[in-house]
Amino acid sequence: MALYSEKVMDHFRNPRNVGVIEDANAIGEVGNAKCGDIMKMYLKIENDIVTDVKFETFGCGSAIASSSMATELIKGQPLSEVRKLTNRAVSEALDGLPDYKMHCSVLAEEAIQAALEDYEKRTGVTV
């Protein structure tokens, strides 16, 4: 019995959408170094659609995999859908996370919601 599902290991070993978007118009950062995980999401939003998304994560295997999966789930999606993203959707897409790692998927949800709040603040638009 492995620690993580194949999906988690795949997203951990080959994380999608890693990096920074220099001209991102929505950035969300959550977590803290003291607790051992920080996630930062960079979104490029055009016409209410997430046209590009990248992430940076300091954290364990499931934190990196959760970030990667979350970016996949929102890329190309309208903001109305992105707003509905839950940690459950992230963990389910990863074929589950161990109980004590569920907070990693929560962090991914929070990072994206934080980016949307940043977008609202920058644009005055309510998502």
């Binding site: 994380p15 890693v18 990096g19 950062e29 920080i38 930062k40 992430f55 940076e56 994560t57 300091f58």
Partner: peptide
């Protein structure tokens, strides 16, 4: 080096 490459703390 790889992990630091996408660590927001390292940045």
């Amino acid at each position: 080096e790889y992990l630091r490459g996408f660590s927001p703390i390292w940045r």
